[in-house]
Design a protein around this nucleic acid. Sequence first.
DNA 1: AACGAGGTCAACCGCTGTAAC
DNA 2: AGTTACAGCGGTTGACCTCGT
Length: 314
Amino acid sequence: MGRAPCCEKQGLKKGPWTPEEDKILVDYIQTHGHGSWRSLPKLAGLSRCGKSCRLRWTNYLRPDIKRGPFTDEEQKSIIQLHGIVGNKWSTIAAQLPGRTDNEIKNFWNTHLKKRLRRMGIDPDTYAPSSPSAGSLSTGANPATRHMAQWETARLEAEARLSRESLLFSAASNTSSTSDTSTTITTTMDNKSSTEAMCAETDYFLRIWNSEIGDAFRKKMDTSAVPKIKAEPEMIEETGSRNYNSVSGHGDVTFAGFIDNLSGSNDVADAQDEAYRIYLEFAGDELSLFQSQLGGINALFSSDLSEASLDTAFK
DNA sequence: AACGAGGTCAACCGCTGTAAC
DNA sequence: AGTTACAGCGGTTGACCTCGT
């Protein structure tokens, strides 16, 4: 299809940006907006490619960018989200306000990847990558167990994202009340259709309909991750609850439950219910995960400094 | 103090998806 | 329907920094 280059390369500056260039770019965008990135450099008087301007703005100059080291919470989120979506840095960045995909990608490659390796976890597959790690995840079926452990981490992330998104949407759609439950109900009532609501405010359903949900459904379908109800080992070892009684939906699988969810009129209640189930399911399994592998928290434990991890896994 | 190895991160490259024509 | 332009994405590079010898 022979695409033209994004800009004329001749005479355009490359390499690090100078403070003067930064100022020109910031001033221009704050005054005019970025508009077309292609035409921006010419209009602003910069000898840069539009692409370079966009990158500089989105990764460095944007006023809402958070600077400084990643918090433990952010690091946990990155690991959990990476477990769900893989190297979808923009997707991960979307869940971490003020952080850019580039920043997260760099942080993953230079810090988190190494830490996971030191923990004996393959950062690409999340499978145990060393004998020491293997010994940590003992059990009747280590492969299944490990998969389930990471799935629960994914579930927890999904649940949290859903919850936060719902609350955020509700808060931004109303201005007169601080009562969350009222807000949500009111918001739901005001929507003209369930479809519109799903598209605009239901982050959970969007996730479920995205590649994340798709990947998860496939795993559920192929029993790579045990269905909630029929997992004797899980119940036996973790003391999991009877989720049927929690959901009130009878003998449903998680996938089935979500399918029912999308057709429900009482979406707000259903979302809360889904969230609750997610957390209960994930909560038990995360305890298992943490007790066996040290869990994600071990990556951030003050007792497990970089130095001690080095010693432990060398 | 000098040097090299390894780590970090801003920036670039090449590709894809999509809207506009 | 085909083509083009554009924005955005993930992978990679290379300059700079830090640390150990």
